[in-house]
Structure formats: structure tokens, C-alpha cells
């Protein structure tokens, strides 16, 4: 479904991504992990069309999307959320979601119906009249997901949708992700919380300093010496300290 081949990205003289290549198949849940600054969000930005790369290519459903802009890529069925939630702050939650739904629906009325469905699905229906900026962190994350879901993505890139949630919220979010998988959406997920990512994903890709240092099933990854080094060196202490 998604094919990333030999993608590199420089900012100034720094290579933030180096020769990244992998594929994601339909129905998979793939985790993307790595310490801070590893290039995870940059990779998302490249896949979703926010950044251009000069090397390599990205193919979505066998269509080359390397040079396409985000709005076109979204129309093809690839949507992303933002690490720092970007709600449309001054308009109600429902209108936020309707905007996403309009990318598929012909009429406003249909888009509204779709938005209501999605809001029910993520559990934000009660708050549909609140302004985006008045939501809690957890609800903002849900809104990010709801808006994205409203565009009916085939592949959905989730960027740290669990960061900053309390245990209850975390449980709810994991359930939501499972529900998305059940409804047939392929997921590519950046996550910091290892327990979560290991539980959810079928496969995990590990980035470190812009390079892919490992790829495999969660169990393999947790035994991989490279990853342990990358994580124990920095992240392990942070996570457990």
C-alpha cells in the first residue's frame, strides 16, 4: 500500500533522514519508534507531502506521490495527524470534522452526517459544540483523529496521539485505535510509549539519527541489540527515570 524507497532529507547540512526504505501492506499496523530527533515526524511530513525530498520516492497504492502536495495526497486516501494537535481553534468541534468530511462528500449535509458518525466513533459527540481551542489535550488528540477519519483515509498516519494522556484516556485511545483497525484502516503510528506500540503494532520500524536501524515484529525489535542500545543509551533512562 505504501512504498518508501531510499528517501533522504536534509535541513541545511544536516541529514535528518538517510536512505529510508520500507513498505506497508494493507491492513497492517506499523509502529515507528526512535529517540527524540530521530526523524520520525520528518518522515511523516515527507510521506504526507509537507516536505519534498530530492532523493528516492514514495508510492501510495502504486502511485508516485513524492512530488504531490498534501491536499492531493489526502484526496488519494492518505491522511496524517499532527504531533502538536492543530485544532481549528475558533470554530466548533463539529465544524472541524465537517471540514475533513467535505473532502469526500458532495454536499454539506452529507458531510455533517459523516462528521456526526465520526464524532460518535471517537466519542466526541457530546462536545461537538465546543470550540476547538477549549478542548483538553485528550480531546484535542481525538479531534485530530476524528478530522482525519472524516477524510476516509485508507492509510492513516498517527503522530503521537497518546502523548500526554492519563491511563484512562490511554485505554480509551488504544480501544479507538483497535476500532480503526477493525474498520479496515491501515495505520502507521509514531509512538513513544513502548508498551503501547508493542501491543498495537504488527511490525515496528526503528529510526535513530535519521537512519533505519531495525525493522521487524515487536518481539524481535525488543531483542535487537541496536535498538536496545539506541534506547538504553538515552530514552530508557528518560522513560524509567
Amino acid at each position: 500500500m505504501l512504498e518508501v524507497n531510499d528517501v533522504s532529507k536534509w535541513f541545511g547540512g544536516n541529514a535528518v533522514l538517510r536512505n529510508i526504505g520500507f513498505t506497508i501492506d494493507k491492513g497492517e499496523v506499523v509502529g515507528l519508534i526512535g529517540p527524540n530527533g530521530a526523524g520520525k515526524t520528518t518522515l511523516f511530513n515527507v510521506i504526507a507531502g509537507f516536505y519534498r525530498t530530492k532523493t528516492g520516492f514514495v508510492k501510495f497504492n502504486n502511485k508516485d506521490t513524492t512530488r504531490l502536495n498534501p491536499e492531493t495526497i489526502c484526496a488519494l486516501g492518505l491522511c496524517r495527524t499532527f504531533q502538536i494537535a492543530k485544532p481549528f481553534g475558533n470554530i466548533p468541534v463539529k465544524k472541524n470534522v465537517v471540514i475533513g468530511a467535505l473532502s469526500r462528500e458532495k454536499s454539506l449535509r452529507k458531510a455533517e452526517n459523516k462528521a456526526e458518525e465520526v464524532l460518535d466513533f471517537v466519542g466526541l459527540r457530546e462536545k461537538e459544540d465546543l470550540l476547538g481551542k477549549n478542548l483538553t489535550t485528550a480531546d484535542r488528540k481525538k479531534l485530530e483523529i476524528a478530522r482525519g477519519l472524516a477524510t476516509s483515509p485508507k492509510l492513516f498516519l498517527l503522530d503521537e496521539v497518546m502523548a500526554g494522556l492519563n491511563p484512562n484516556e490511554l485505554q480509551a485511545m488504544m480501544q479507538l485505535i483497535r476500532n480503526m483497525v477493525d474498520s479496515g484502516i491501515t495505520l502507521f503510528v509514531i509512538e513513544h510509549i513502548m508498551a503501547v506500540i508493542m501491543k498495537l503494532s504488527h511490525r515496528v520500524i526503528v529510526l535513530n539519527y535519521g537512519e533505519m536501524i531495525a525493522e521487524g515484529e515487536p518481539a524481535e525489535i525488543s531483542r535487537d541489540p541496536n535498538c536496545i542500545k539506541a534506547y538504553l543509551g538515552e530514552e530508557y533512562l528518560v522513560a524509567h527515570g
Partner: peptide, 9 residues
């Protein structure tokens, strides 16, 4: 409200 988010949608 937010151009990046709009484009992503």
C-alpha cells in the same frame, strides 16, 4: 485557523 491542518485534510 491553520493552513497545515487544512492541507492535511
Amino acid at each position: 485557523e491553520n493552513e497545515d491542518a487544512a492541507r492535511a485534510l
